[in-house]
């Protein structure tokens, strides 16, 4: 019985996530449209609300092409490997104090461990396509993942030290009682490193080198079409969801209200508000910034972010020791 219930909940979450992806894409196109003096989607359905649905439908009924010289097995496997971890990491995200699918005591570790698997899918896809552009895209993706996974994990060590737990639920509990208790203030350095590394992990502008369309045409998914392509697309947006949720939890107090007298508003509303502003932020920088160069990306990751993250851990430890 419990198993059935779990499966039903998982299915419900999938629907929520797919709904989010649908409207995140719509929202992104609208936001970027406004920034760029355009209207964005406005034809399919009222205000263009069904545009993404139509797009997904189109991808579904599109012919599924696999290049002749491609490595068939890996080519088919790659989108799956990319998508599954993206969805699985969502299990540990706590939306409110008691609305969470799995309260793992190593929740944060679980998230980082699984999310790095997706990159293997991207690398495989780039390799299996047997296309030079996608190979370059896949290589870039691997290099980027290795360089930015490290500062990403390092940047949250400060948060872990503050709350003394890897459980996401406990981390949020520790931030109750107003925005001055949220982690982004004591961990401002960690917060900034986290945001930069997270955008890089998402492969979004200004770090969208693996699919840099002006250089590599479409990078690792040049040869993909139809629903296999949709899987890559889906994975990207599910990670947007995941990273936005994670940032909210780690640094912005999760479901807690910014001021104590606003506590009467349900926690889920606060969570959605914070979550949406991060999603908006991601779209905003996409419309504003140019793309960074590969070598700059590497030197930023290794020479700036990583040392800074290490210093941050060091300083945090000392301060915790002093004020204990």
């Amino acid at each position: 019985m419990a198993l059935l219930q779990n499966i039903l909940w998982a299915a419900f979450l999938l629907v929520v996530v797919l709904g989010f992806v649908t409207y995140a894409i719509y929202f992104e196109r609208k936001v970027i449209g406004w920034i760029q003096l355009r209207k964005g989607p406005n034809r399919v359905g009222p205000l263009g609300l069904f545009q993404t649905v139509a797009d997904v439908l189109k991808l579904l009924i599109k012919e599924d092409t696999i290049p002749n010289k491609a490595d068939r097995f890996l080519f088919i496997l790659a989108p799956v490997i990319t998508f599954v971890p993206a969805f699985v990491v969502l299990a540990t995200i706590p939306y409110t104090a008691d609305w969470q699918f799995a309260d793992l005591n190593v929740g944060l570790l679980y998230y980082f461990a699984l999310s790095s698997i997706s990159t293997i899918g991207i690398l495989l896809g780039g390799w299996a396509s047997n296309n030079k552009y996608s190979l370059l895209g896949g290589m870039r993706s691997a290099a980027q993942m290795i360089s930015y996974e490290v500062p990403l994990v390092m940047s949250v060590v400060g948060v872990i030290l503050l709350s003394g737990s890897l459980s996401l639920n406990t981390i949020v509990e520790g931030q109750a009682g107003g925005f001055w208790n949220w982690n982004f203030l004591p961990q401002i350095v960690g917060f900034i490193i986290f945001i930069i590394a997270a955008v890089s992990e998402l492969n979004r502008t200004p770090f969208d080198l693996p699919e840099a369309e002006s250089e590599l045409v479409a990078g690792y998914h040049v040869e993909y079409s139809g629903f296999r392509f949709a899987f890559f697309m889906l994975a990207e947006y599910v990670y947007v969801y995941a990273i936005a949720a994670l940032t909210t939890i780690l640094f912005l107090g999760g479901w807690h209200s910014p001021l104590p007298f606003l506590d009467f508003i349900p926690g889920i509303i606060w969570f959605i508000l914070k979550f949406s502003s991060i999603v908006f932020f991601l779209f905003w920088i996409r419309a504003t910034l140019p793309r960074i160069r590969v070598d700059h990306l590497m030197s930023l990751g290794w020479k700036v972010l990583l040392p800074l993250a290490l210093v941050n851990i060091f300083v945090t430890t000392i301060i915790i020791e002093i004020f204990k």
């Binding site: 970027i32 920034i35 760029q36 003096l37 355009r38 502008t205 200004p206 969208d208 840099a212 002006s214 996409r286 419309a287 504003t288 910034l289 140019p290 793309r291 960074i292």
Partner: peptide, 11 residues
């Protein structure tokens, strides 16, 4: 646009 910034093109 080549460098990766989308918006200036439309401006």
């Amino acid at each position: 646009l080549d460098i990766g910034a989308m918006s200036p093109f439309l401006y």
